[in-house]
Write a protein that binds this DNA or RNA. Structure first.
Length: 935
DNA sequence: GACATCACG
DNA sequence: GACGTACGTGATGTCC
């Protein structure tokens, strides 16, 4: 039937269906093989319901489901931050996308998508075609962006609420008719799609303006006439941004399509095709209902229930199945490997572990790979073992019976890169980096270490040995038993293949069992979102940063080391002179004896060891009393620290191949969600002392590039103001006031213009103290004031900001009740000691107060980092380092300003859309030839 | 390997 | 009323 008058076209917003189905349903998996299938199930149910609901006299004559395809559209060319706030697609959803297309076709409904075009534009195109042909259109969607299409025989239907959206409903929502919806949206902007709009103008105001001036162009042309000064200024200054916003929200009805409306005619489904698909998906209930409807027999679905699908209920659940090292297979040829690859493909997942010659991924060579697809069954593929025959040449020959490395990798690459097969690892970042060095980009990945972290942060560590013992009641073969320890330790390529099989295959086996144990728990314990949005997508980002490394200038460090050595020698002589004897200045024990026994200064023993305390605070007090020796020791210690930890050690970390220093981030290291940096730690490079700060001059940009640093300003205090709901602090942050000065003014009744640096300093210490779970003792020690006075400050602070005390009490109460506290993004940090008696409870109490604040800040910067690759993809900029509230980039000189603009925008908007903070997040930026200049 | 010390946010 | 106390990390050197 040719489309024309009397025809009725239904256009279904397929992507909206999918996301609604995915988020509404628990993460179902297909019973036979564990393929995630929840979104497909929800999608099919929604389509089925739609078909049933649209059979009456007003049934459509034509119908199509439209999907988005590709993430880059003309809107990204117009505005590189378009939809930059969007979270990446959850890994569990990705393999389901093609299945939703199949489902649509199984229902015999036209399935439409076009690379590089948004579904909304295709819907607009079809709508206009149908309307022009004289037909009616119903758009099944509740997306406000489609409301501009309503009118003239076009209406929308919110399928969830079963609510019609006509011209009236659009007017109700936007305050203008459908033809002016675009104008209102252009002014109001949209935080979800990251449409900038006119700052300070929302839908209400936008409608008011449009109704007064007729349309957007007239409004902008006559902006001078707007009475309210702020609005007028915005409209004049932001006119370009508003016009850009309009381009972004305006749907494009010119999508080139290679079919006509006639092709969308409603057709009965083919029972075989539809039931075949539903049977293949193993949807029992839906198959039955559909079969009844079609008057045919439902498909038979075998009731398979393999080990692992429902672990705890099964007798051979992974935590109960015994470990049998002799059962592990050694894969020595392509045929055997092919079988394992087939099994992995059939399953849709595979646990992977690599064995290498070093813990430093940048230098490690691949020695072997282990795989596991079923609990208890695993293989090891030896690739780089040496034969161990101790000849004169160091036995560098490859051992017999190994596949050539390249042949094995060629076979494995398609599997490891297959988007439909989940690669499961323990600390997958390590293995992914190894594979990356051999040209394999492993994806998608799951990580048992990160699952444990999301589930159990604060309860225990997340290393494999600990997890295996705790959850599988199995002690893995210690690596030391193969490699030995200390000076005589060997590398893994020297381990006999027979021993390596038992060790390595066991690791893959354990990993698979742990993932089958943890995966369902993520949802049960409400941390799926944390795992999916804050943990899993961060892995490739960190891997990239670590592989990029940062250039460090050896000569600068070397010169500084020499200078430090000279100064230290001078100081040492002086110290020995003052002491009247020679001793090891680096030994706190000897120093204590000199100071307190020999010289008889005031001071006391401390700690279980009975040694004198000689910490910086003690020495500073002594120095303040006029003693020279402790003052010299303080200087010596500072230099010693800078030399040994930084100027000396950093040189050893320069990778000879890249000339750069490659740190490793531990994603599950800090209980709060912060990262930790090791080998070397680049999160504690000196900055507070002038002398130390100069070490940052050695962290340089390549020729023609610039180091750019962006850091959040006062992010933890801002988060405190938000979570504790302190109006005065929120207001101060909104107005960009000096928060410490304001606190001082409130507490000490000093007007802001009479503020002294010392009063401000005290207020600053109190502000930080609050974040740490303040105590009179701690504040007294920090400010070096009597304890009573410090307590007085705290009392006054709580009097002034009662909301803070309430927040602290509530947080502790929550922790005592639940055993954990939460960040704004749902990260759980467990506090097992909170109900204990003794000093442990005090620590736990303060940690509980601090964790949501520190953790929320950590979550925010993680979100920014995860979005960064996509936001900066067109820019010649590399993200190199994260230092808790700072991100460091290396940028081509010409692109510095653009990069700062994009990165700042991403960082400042990183909490959105999941959390709308009551305070703005602001970011300071710096740039220069090295880190010292950029900071 | 425990402990003290000190670098960072 | 006494008890110990700022929160979160990692690297280094000494000493047992």
């Amino acid at each position: 039937m040719a489309f024309g008058k009397g025809c009725h076209l239904h256009l279904i917003d397929g992507s909206a269906f999918i996301f609604r189905a995915f988020h509404a349903l628990p993460p179902l998996t297909r019973k036979s093989d564990g393929l995630p299938i929840g979104a497909v199930a929800g999608f099919c149910n929604m389509i089925f319901k739609y078909v049933e609901d649209n059979k009456g006299p007003d049934a459509p004559t034509h119908v199509a489901v439209i999907f988005d395809k590709g993430s880059h559209t003309f809107r990204n060319d117009l505005y590189d931050l378009y939809k930059a706030n969007r979270e990446d697609m959850p890994e569990d959803l990705r393999p389901q996308i093609p299945l939703t297309r199949e489902a649509t076709r199984a229902f015999n409904i036209a399935c439409i998508e076009k690379e590089g075009y948004e579904a909304d534009d295709i819907i607009a195109t079809l709508t206009v075609q149908a309307r022009d042909a004289g037909g009616r259109v119903t758009i099944i969607s509740s997306d406000k962006d489609l409301m501009q299409l309503v009118g003239g025989g076009v209406e929308m239907l919110d399928a969830m609420k079963n609510k019609r959206i006509g011209v009236e409903e659009v007017a109700e929502k936007f305050g203008v008719g459908p033809d002016r919806v675009v104008d209102v949206q252009a002014l109001a902007g949209d935080s979800v799609d990251n449409i900038p709009g006119a700052p300070g103008i929302g839908i209400k105001t936008a409608a008011l303006l449009i109704n007064e001036y007729g349309d957007l162009d007239s409004l902008l042309a006559r902006a001078e006439e707007v009475k309210q000064p702020k609005r007028r200024q915005t409209l004049i200054e932001k006119a370009d941004q508003i016009r850009l916003s309009r381009q972004l929200v305006q749907l494009d009805a010119q999508t080139p399509l290679d079919f006509t409306l006639d092709a969308l005619e409603v057709q009965e489904p083919d029972p075989d095709a539809l039931l075949g698909f539903l049977g293949q998906m193993e949807f029992r209930t839906l198959s039955k209902r559909v079969a009844e409807n079609l008057g045919v027999a439902p498909p038979a679905i075998p009731d398979t229930n393999p080990a692992g699908a429902n672990p705890s209920a099964e007798p051979d659940a992974p935590e109960n199945l015994p470990f049998v090292p002799e059962g592990y297979e050694c894969v020595r040829d392509a045929a055997a490997l092919g079988l394992w690859i087939e099994r992995a493909n059939a399953r849709g997942w595979v646990a992977v572990d690599t064995e290498t010659t070093s813990l430093d991924e940048m230098r490690a060579d691949l020695v072997g790979i282990s795989l596991s697809v079923e609990p208890g069954q695993a293989c090891y593929i030896p690739l780089g073992h040496r034969d161990g025959s101790d000849d004169l040449f160091g036995s560098d020959n490859l051992a017999e019976g190994q596949m050539p490395l390249n042949a094995a990798l060629d076979l494995l690459k398609p599997l490891l890169e297959d988007p439909a097969v989940m690669k499961i690892g323990q600390n997958m970042k390590y293995d992914a980096k190894i594979f990356a060095r051999y040209g394999i980009q492993v994806a998608p990945i799951d990580d048992t270490m990160l699952m444990s972290y999301a589930l159990n942060s604060g309860l225990h560590g997340h290393g494999m040995d600990a997890l295996s013992e705790r959850y599988l009641d199995h002690v893995p073969i210690p690596i030391k038993s193969l490699l030995g320890s200390g000076k005589s330790a060997i590398t893994f390529d020297r381990v006999p293949i027979g021993d390596a099989v038992k060790y390595a295959a066991e690791d893959a086996d354990i990993t698979l069992r742990l993932s089958q144990l943890f995966k369902p728990q993520l949802h049960q314990r409400r941390v799926t979102t944390v795992y999916e949005t804050l943990e899993r997508p961060l892995v490739p980002v960190l891997a990239e940063m670590e592989m990029a490394g940062i250039k460090v200038d050896r000569d600068t460090l070397s010169r500084m080391s020499n200078a430090f050595a000279q100064k230290m020698a001078g100081l040492e002589a002086e110290i020995h002179d003052l002491a009247g004897q020679s001793f090891n200045v680096g030994s706190p024990k000897q120093l204590g004896e000199i100071l307190f026994d020999k010289m008889g200064l005031e001071g006391g023993k401390k700690g279980k060891t009975g040694a004198y305390a000689t910490g910086a605070d003690v020495l500073e007090d002594l120095a303040a009393e006029g003693h020279d020796l402790p003052a010299r020791v303080l200087d010596w210690r500072q230099l010693s620290k800078l030399k040994s930890t930084y100027t000396d050690a950093l040189q050893d970390h320069i990778n000879p191949e890249t000339g750069r220093v490659h740190t490793s981030y531990i994603q599950s290291g800090a209980n709060t969600g912060r990262l930790a940096s090791t080998d070397p730690n680049l999160q504690n490079i000196p900055v507070r002392s002038e002398e130390g700060r100069r070490i940052r001059e050695a962290f340089v940009a390549e020729t023609g590039k610039v180091i750019v640093s962006l850091d959040y300003s006062q992010i933890e205090l801002r988060i405190l103001a938000h979570v504790a709901g302190i109006d005065e602090l929120k207001q101060a942050f909104r107005e960009g006031q000096d928060i410490h000065a304001l606190t001082a003014s409130e507490m000490f009744d000093v007007p802001l213009d009479e503020m002294t640096p010392d009063i401000r300093r005290q207020a600053k210490a109190i502000n930080f103290g609050v974040i740490y779970g303040i105590s009179g003792f701690g504040l007294a020690r920090n400010l070096r004031i009597p304890r009573g006075e410090a307590q007085g400050f705290i009392d006054r602070y709580f009097e002034r900001f009662p909301g803070i005390r309430e927040y602290m009490d509530d947080t502790v109460k929550f922790a005592k009740e639940h055993g954990f506290v939460e960040t704004l993004f749902g990260r759980k940090i467990h506090t097992p000691e909170i109900n204990a008696k003794g000093p442990g409870a005090g620590f736990a109490r303060r940690a509980a107060i601090n964790a949501p604040i520190q953790g929320t800040a950590a979550d925010v910067i993680r979100r920014a980092m995860i979005r960064m690759p996509r936001a900066t993809c067109g820019l010649p900029a590399k993200m190199l380092l994260q230092v808790h509230d700072e991100l460091l980039f290396e940028v081509e000189a010409g692109a510095v300003d653009d990069t700062i603009a994009v990165v700042r925008k991403v960082m400042e908007g990183a909490a959105m859309p999941a959390v709308k903070l009551d305070v703005p997040l602001t970011v300071d930026a710096g740039q220069g030839a090295n880190w010292a200049e950029a900071h």
